[in-house]
Design a protein around this nucleic acid. Structure first.
Length: 619
RNA sequence: GCGGGAGUAGUUCAGUUGGUUAGAACGCCGCCCUGUCACGGCGGAGGUCGCGGGUUCAAGUCCCGUCUCUCGCGCCA
C-alpha cells in the first residue's frame, strides 16, 4: 500500500464499500461525541468523513489533534445507514472507519478559520496566504484561473499561434508606466528594466517572420494598485499577428474571449451578436467613459442646443455654454413614482463630486405624434427645480433628443466638455444603481475603436501621444502631414467587458518614415527616436510586415468569471496595496557586500517610522 | 501626493450622554456526551481599546498629532 494515499478525499463513493483505503489530508473539522469521533478529512479534491468507533484505542490520541494538521488515515470504506447519509456531500454516502492514523504534521492554533469564511481581513490573509489558499473559495478561484489559462492556450494554439518566452531582463521603455529596474553587475551604473509588456519583443518576433505570436506574459509596472489592478505585476494573454487589419485581430480575439466567457460563465451569458464597436468620441459622449458598462441601459445625450436657445432662461447653464461648455442629459425611465428623496440624494451625491448639483426635469406627461418621430410635452407637464426656465418648445426638444416617455426624468450636467462627460459618466452609473436596473447575469462586451493618436496635455501645453506611440495612424503618412494632429485617429482599440477594460491593442506602425513623422509631431527629434527605439527602427528597415495585436489581462478575465470585486482574490501570492509581500518580506534590504558588487550606494530619505515601530511591524 | 472608511480578545464585531470589573459569536484550553456533518452541554483562559500627546475628578468614547490597512483620485503608452 502506498505510504500516503490510495485515493483522494473527493473520490470515495458507495462502489468502494468494503475496500481498505488510505487517504491523506488536512483535518477540516472534528466532531467529538465522547464515544464516537468524526473527522472531516480534506484535500484539494474534496472532503471525506472518517469515523472512530466507540472503544477504538486511537480516540485518546486523535482527539488531541488540532484542525489543519496533516494526517494519514488507513481504514475501511463503509456505506452509511440511510439516516446518516449526507446528501450535501459528494462522498456523503460513505465514511471511512479508521483503523490507523498517523500525524504527518501537527498544526499550531491557526490565526483564522480555514473551514469557514470568518471574514478575516486581507492583511492577515496575505500574511498566512498558505492557510487562506486552503479555503474552498480560493481553491475554486485558483483552479478557475488555471482552467481559464489552459483554455486560452488551447484556443490560441488551435488558431495557429505559437507560444514564445520573451526576456524578463530587458530594456527600459521611455513611454508609459514606471519601470522596475534591476542593477547590472557587469555594467556599473547600468540597469535592466522588467518589461511593462513584451510590446517590442512581440513586434520583433513579427519582424522575425513568425506571423502568429502569443504568450501568457508577465508584465511589471511600478504603479499604485487598485481593486482591479494588482500591484507590481500581472499577466496578459499577449498576442500579435502579421499581415492583418484591425478586423483580422478582432476576428481572432473575439471568439477567444466569447468562448472562454461562455465556457466558464456558469450560467452568465454572452450576447451572441458581434461585440458592438463604439468610437472613442461616441463612448465619451454617450457613456462618459472609454470603458462603458453596457449592462447599464442609461445613455447620455447632448442637449447643449436646447439650453442655448433664446427662450430658455437658465443662466447657470447659459453662462457655461457661452464659455464653450456643454450640457449633457441622462434619461431615467419611469421615475415619476420615486420619492423626492431619490432626487435629493442624487443631488447630494453630485455635490459630493464637486458639482453644483444635479438639476433635473420630471416629465409627467409626454405625447407622441402619430408618425412617432416627434413627441410633445407642455410646460405644465414638466416638474422639477429647473423646469420653469424652459419654454414649451424647449421641453419638446428635450423629449425628442432623449426619446422620452411619460414619467421619465432627465438629469443635467453642465461643464466644459471633458468634465461634463466624466461627471455624466459617473452619474449614469450612480442613477443606474440607485434605480437597481443594472443587468445581471450577463457579460456585455464592446470594442472601443478610433482612439485619437494625440492629445493636448494641458500641464505641459504640448501635443502628446494619447496611447501607444507604436500605433499606426489612420490615413498613414498623409494624415500626419496634412491633418490637425488632434483630429488624427489611430488604429488603436480597447476591449471592454462590464465596464472593465480587459485590453488595449493596435495595428502597429511598421514604416520608419511614419514613425519619424509621428514622433516629430509629439516633439521628439530623430535623434531621440534613434536613441530610444534604434533597434526597432533598424528592424523596420530590413523588411517589416504590417502587424498588430492585443493583450487581454488574464487576471481581470478570471476576476470577472469568478465574480470577484478584487483582483487579489484570483492571484495566489499577491502583494498588498503598498507592493509588499508580507509573507516573504519583499521588498527587503540588501547586504552591503551585495550592493557593492552591484556598484550601488544608497541615498535614503529620512525614516518615516521610528525604527522600533518598523521592527515591530516586520516581526 | 490627495480624499473617504476602518483600526477594541486569535478572528469577526458590539460598546449608550465621557462614569462600576470593556462584552458577544466563532476559535482556544478543561470536563461531559454513541451518529454528527456549522454536533451539543458545562466551565475557563484570553484585552497596551493601533501608537503618542492633550482636555477632564474620570477617556475605548472628546480634541490634536501620528502609524497601518482598505476604497477612490492622481498615476497606470
Amino acid at each position: 500500500m502506498h505510504d500516503y494515499r490510495t485515493h483522494t478525499c473527493g473520490e470515495l463513493t458507495k462502489t468502494y464499500t468494503g475496500e481498505t483505503v488510505r487517504i491523506s489530508g488536512w483535518i477540516h473539522r472534528m466532531r467529538d461525541h465522547g464515544g464516537v469521533v468524526f473527522i472531516d478529512l480534506r484535500d484539494t479534491y474534496g472532503l471525506t468523513q472518517c469515523v472512530l468507533e466507540e472503544g477504538s484505542d486511537l480516540i485518546q490520541k486523535i482527539s488531541q489533534w488540532r484542525n489543519e494538521s496533516v494526517i494519514t488515515i488507513t481504514g475501511t470504506v463503509k456505506a452509511r445507514t440511510a439516516e446518516t447519509v449526507n446528501s450535501k456531500m459528494p462522498t456523503g454516502a460513505i465514511e471511512v472507519e479508521i483503523r490507523d492514523a498517523i500525524l504527518q504534521s501537527a498544526a499550531d492554533v491557526i490565526p483564522f478559520q480555514v473551514a469557514e469564511e470568518d471574514g478575516a481581513g486581507e492583511e492577515i490573509r496575505l500574511k498566512y496566504r498558505y492557510l487562506d489558499l486552503r479555503r474552498e473559495k480560493m481553491q475554486r478561484n485558483i483552479r478557475l484561473r488555471n482552467n481559464v489559462i489552459t483554455s486560452l492556450r488551447r484556443r490560441m494554439t488551435e488558431k495557429g499561434f505559437q507560444e514564445f518566452q520573451t526576456p524578463i531582463l530587458t530594456a527600459s521603455s521611455p513611454e508609459g508606466a514606471r519601470d522596475f529596474l534591476v542593477p547590472s553587475r557587469l555594467h556599473p551604473g547600468k540597469f535592466y528594466a522588467l518589461p511593462q509588456a513584451p510590446q517590442q519583443d512581440k513586434q520583433r518576433l513579427m519582424m522575425s517572420g513568425f506571423d502568429r505570436y502569443f504568450q501568457i506574459a508577465p508584465c511589471f509596472r511600478d504603479e499604485d494598485s487598485r481593486a482591479d489592478r494588482s500591484p507590481g505585476e500581472f499577466y496578459q494573454l499577449d498576442m500579435e499577428m502579421s499581415f492583418v487589419t484591425q478586423d483580422d485581430v478582432f476576428g481572432v480575439i473575439e471568439p477567444v474571449m466569447r468562448g472562454v466567457f461562455e465556457e466558464f460563465g456558469t450560467g452568465r451569458t454572452v450576447d451572441p451578436k458581434p461585440f458592438p464597436r463604439i468610437a472613442y468620441r461616441d463612448a465619451m459622449r454617450r457613456y462618459g467613459s472609454d470603458k462603458p458598462d453596457l449592462r447599464n441601459p442609461l445613455e447620455i445625450v447632448d442637449v447643449t442646443e436646447v439650453f442655448a436657445r433664446d427662450d430658455v432662461e437658465f443662466n447657470a447653464f447659459k453662462n457655461v455654454i457661452k464659455k464653450g461648455g456643454v450640457v449633457r442629459a441622462i434619461r431615467a425611465p419611469k421615475v415619476v413614482d420615486q420619492p423626492r428623496s431619490f432626487f435629493d440624494k442624487l443631488n447630494g451625491w453630485a455635490q459630493a463630486q464637486g458639482a453644483p448639483g444635479l438639476g433635473y426635469i420630471l416629465f409627467e406627461h409626454v405625447e407622441h405624434n402619430n408618425d412617432s418621430t416627434e413627441c410633445i410635452t407642455s410646460a405644465g407637464d414638466a416638474k422639477g427645480p429647473i423646469a420653469k426656465f424652459l419654454s414649451g418648445r424647449a421641453l419638446t426638444m428635450l423629449c425628442e433628443l432623449a426619446n422620452l416617455e411619460s414619467g421619465d426624468a432627465l438629469f443635467f450636467i453642465c461643464n466644459v466638455e471633458k468634465d461634463a462627460a466624466k461627471l455624466a459618466g459617473l452619474a449614469r452609473d450612480k442613477i443606474c444603481d440607485d434605480m437597481g436596473i443594472r443587468e445581471q447575469g450577463v457579460f456585455r462586451f464592446c470594442w472601443i475603436v478610433d482612439f485619437p493618436m494625440y492629445e493636448f496635455d494641458e500641464k505641459t501645453n504640448k501635443i502628446e501621444f494619447s496611447h501607444n506611440p507604436f500605433s499606426m495612424p489612420q490615413g498613414g503618412l498623409d494624415a500626419l502631414e496634412n491633418k490637425d494632429p488632434l483630429d488624427i485617429l489611430a488604429w488603436q482599440y480597447d476591449i471592454v467587458c462590464n465596464g472593465i477594460e480587459l485590453s488595449s491593442g493596435a495595428i502597429r506602425n511598421h514604416k520608419p518614415e511614419i514613425m519619424e513623422k509621428a514622433f516629430a509631431i509629439a516633439g521628439y527629434g530623430k535623434d531621440v527616436l534613434e536613441a530610444k527605439f534604434g533597434g526597432m527602427l533598424s528592424a523596420m528597415r530590413f523588411g517589416a510586415p504590417p502587424h498588430g495585436g492585443i493583450a487581454p489581462g488574464v487576471d481581470r478575465i478570471v476576476m470577472l468569471l469568478a465574480g470577484e470585486p478584487n483582483i487579489r482574490e484570483v492571484i495566489v501570492f499577491p502583494m498588498n496595496g503598498q507592493a509588499e509581500d508580507v509573507m516573504m518580506g519583499a521588498p527587503n534590504t540588501a547586504d552591503p557586500a551585495h550592493l557593492k558588487e552591484l556598484h550601488i550606494k544608497l541615498d535614503l530619505p529620512k525614516a518615516k517610522v521610528e525604527p522600533e515601530a518598523a521592527q515591530k511591524k516586520s516581526t
